[in-house]
Design a protein around this nucleic acid. Structure first.
Lengths: 246, 246
DNA sequence: AGAAAACCTGCACAAACCTGCATTTTTTAA
DNA sequence: TTAAAAAATGCAGGTTTGTGCAGGTTTTCT
């Protein structure tokens, strides 16, 4: 059997079943595992399949859309600070938004963590990394914000208990606390806070001092505030009274 | 034997078997390996065959795998048929897989539909369209398959009732019914079937007559079988006994 | 935390490959 | 017809490719 033939066969199998196991292939094709591995590696190099531990997957299934992210630099700084709160074996509740997603990208891979989320994009991002378990709390999905909302979700949230919650926010003010303009998000965020031992709010400094229509939580209901500014920055002093600024 | 004759013979062999080995040819034609190699090289230069290490392949096979989604055309036909089952206000349970995704892309936008799914990619796709409500049943997310699995999901599924379930499958056989190689998928698919009034299985005809490790449902547990073939096609007659073929 | 499976790296060896050259066959044209 | 030119073939050599195996490492699962 020629190499190319083998690879055609593999591609066909993947297109048909969306996945193949190295072990299966190596008995079917009667070659060593190394050869199969090399074939898969090569096909993956050409972008024809997606190589994973133990076999390969169809790459047509998992193309995720990623656009430009606003204020990437600042968000990277925030991410680094947030990650310092993570510890082995933690249950971490995460929300949505690009800031949170940046954090997820740089979480140390050697920690074993369990993430709980209601957000589709966050869940998808987390699935790219091994070592994490991902629990998605279901419910009716809000089109605009792409996360689960509604009574089901709130009830599901009530049933869990996380060690830490990483919450992005659209508006934060020393007096008014955090707020949002979307009613459904607010309900979910309140429930997330309630289900978490500690809460860290992450936001770029740009949003400091803004208030939106619906109230989520006062500052003293939160444990950490994380921005890209150094903790000593004057813009943060008002917040430092009611929670720890990182 | 003339050079032209040899090359003629080689082309004939390739058209018949889709491949030739240099070694075979050189004994059959009683010439040195170098000569065979040179012939193959020449034919390949004219684009008549595809030269590979150790022999040559038919070039007709090779070029069709470049499609973005495998068998997109067939899947579009399937999608059109599936959509004919949809009615205003229906609750529709959908699985994952590219076939199902193709269907979701052409669902008429003017129907108001409520979709229920455990699959992140399907949910994300559906969110692109207004007019639909999307309910995502949560649980632990399986990394490989990117949908929710485990006891939570099964229990969530038990709590809902859909009018119609659109189920992709990796393997289907008139005797053995539908099956899959992934244990977790199987559990979820079983629950999906159980929670649905009617079930439509969608698959490209290529998969007809294949069986995988784990059994999901016999054919008579399903209501519709949808392939790209016309219902009268002989390959479908065995299936027509136990369910409606579209 | 420990075992099993999958992985990678380097190595060895055979098969296939290429290059250049000598030999044979075919073609061309005087 | 025959000699020169051109093409085709086979061979020697050195190179590349494909494959399997040994070993040590990483990943996964429990």
């Amino acid at each position: 059997m020629l190499k190319k033939e083998r690879q055609e066969y593999i591609l066909q199998q993947i297109n048909r079943h969306n996945k193949v196991l190295s072990a299966d292939l190596c008995t079917k094709l009667a070659v060593s595992e190394d050869t199969v591995r090399r074939d898969l590696h090569e096909l993956a190099g050409d972008g024809k399949i997606l190589k994973v531990h133990g076999g390969a997957l169809s790459n047509t299934l998992y193309q995720d859309t990623q656009g430009e992210i606003y204020a990437r630099q600042e968000k990277a700084i925030i991410a680094a600070k947030a990650v310092s709160l993570f510890e082995e074996g933690m249950y971490i509740m995460v929300g949505g938004g690009t800031t949170v997603r940046e954090i997820l990208k740089i979480v140390p891979r050697d920690l074993r963590l369990i993430f709980i989320t209601v957000n589709l994009a966050s869940a998808t991002e987390l699935l790219n990394y091994t070592n994490y378990e991902v629990i998605l709390l279901g419910g009716k999905v809000s089109r605009h914000t792409r996360f689960c909302t509604g009574g089901d979700t709130i009830m599901n949230l009530a049933d869990v208990r996380a060690d830490l919650c990483i919450l992005g926010t659209n508006a934060i003010d020393a007096e008014a606390g955090i707020s949002d303009s979307d009613y459904e998000s607010v309900q979910v965020k309140k429930a997330m806070i309630k289900s978490s031992e500690r809460v860290a709010v992450v936001t770029i400094s740009e949003k400091l001092g803004s208030v939106e229509r619906f109230h989520i939580s006062p500052m003293n209901g939160l444990d950490y505030l994380i921005t890209e500014l150094p903790p000593a920055h004057e813009a943060l002093q008002d917040y430092a009274k009611s929670c720890e600024v990182l």
